[in-house]
Design a protein around this nucleic acid. Structure first.
Lengths: 199, 199
DNA sequence: CGGCAAACTGACACGCGTGTCAGCGAACGG
DNA sequence: CCGTTCGCTGACACGCGTGTCAGTTTGCCG
């Protein structure tokens, strides 16, 4: 087994342990036991516990970044609705395919560290800005409701985050991505209440 | 200063420290320093660090519970819409009034402990059940869209959670509760997109 | 085979934070 | 003014997990 493989193996086992026990409860002992290597070997490949953790999260965030594509309202081949759906389905699929990382990202990553928190918030901010910006642009095109687009972004991201978290906790099949996407999309289009919205 | 006061004081300082540093980074040293008492005094009033933390969260959850009232569709004096709005405004106000507890509940409480996680999930499940049940009831009354009511519950709770988290992190005025309630309500009624929802 | 390098091992020392407890001082009543 | 109670104090001992490093094994080449 060469260095790259071994590294990957430790990384994968660390991921499982973090997901199962949570960052703080996860001991190096648990990780090396899961990876079937000695304590010292771990430190040949990683700086420390925080090091592996950060690498795991960074890699996942990079993949997430790739899954979110800017919407082009002028694309003749794909409607805006289709582009939005594709984004949602890509994101849901990514998360549902890696349950462990989903759990880690949503429950352990925030609150690790002041430094890491900052970085995480920066990434998050970027997503929110992209979304809020798209909403604002959409308003001028008349395809987004009037209102605070930043708040729309919070509500949208929050709704999806929670759905993902619950889906992963309840062991939803990753084939659910399509169905869940439809639910999310219609929720974004028309909400879930059918009440006359009196003032 | 009598025992009750002192206890309350330590509790309040502990809350601030937990909110500022996060549960794991918060040391007993920090708490006693903030409360201006000696290390030993802390242990006269609380079992241990986990003990204070659990008490803080329990108290807050009890208040949250009181803020959520079951909707009565047959109430002649208050429309369903009004009742929903009141629930939302009560919840938002509660959270916005106690920033520290909001941060603690949303970022530190999950992942403390296997035991505590179970309890927390049970409370959470209760809220979700109430909401999903109400949605199902609403469907028979024709005031809730067709679809998976459990998913609606996830999306709704997630949207509100995220909005709260961001509002607290960005130091929103607690007077924002009314405005945010309107945004949330209209989001639940009509979503934020105005796109023809093609199949 | 011998010799050398690279990969791995796990016992150990260290640091940090916790919880304890023997003792101190203030308040109060006799 | 002494004795007792009660709340408080903070130095200390202990346990736990980390990171290290001297030593062992593996594998490869001359």
């Amino acid at each position: 087994m060469d260095k790259i493989e071994r590294r990957a193996q430790i990384l994968a086992r660390a991921r499982d342990v973090f997901a199962k026990r949570g960052y703080h409860a996860a001991k190096i002992e648990d990780i090396v036991a899961a990876a079937k290597v000695a304590r010292g070997t771990f430190y040949l490949y990683f700086e420390d516990k925080r090091g592996v953790f950060v690498e795991l999260v960074d890699r996942f965030l990079a993949r997430l970044h790739l899954a979110i594509l800017r919407i082009d309202p002028r694309d003749p081949s794909r409607s805006v609705a289709a582009q939005i759906r594709e984004n949602i389905v890509r994101v849901l699929t990514l998360f549902l395919q890696d349950r462990a990382m989903t759990k880690i990202l949503l429950t352990d990553a925030p609150g690790l560290d002041a430094d890491f928190d900052r970085k995480l918030r920066a990434v998050y901010e970027e997503v929110l800005n992209l979304l809020a910006g798209s909403f604002t642009e959409g308003q001028t095109l008349g395809i987004v409701a009037a209102g605070d687009t930043r708040v729309f972004a919070y509500l949208t991201v929050g709704a999806i985050k929670e759905l993902l978290y619950q889906s992963v906790m309840l062991d939803f099949d990753e084939k659910s991505a399509e169905r869940l996407t439809s639910e999310v999309f219609s929720f974004l289009c028309r909400g879930c209440l059918r009440i006359p919205d009196e003032p």
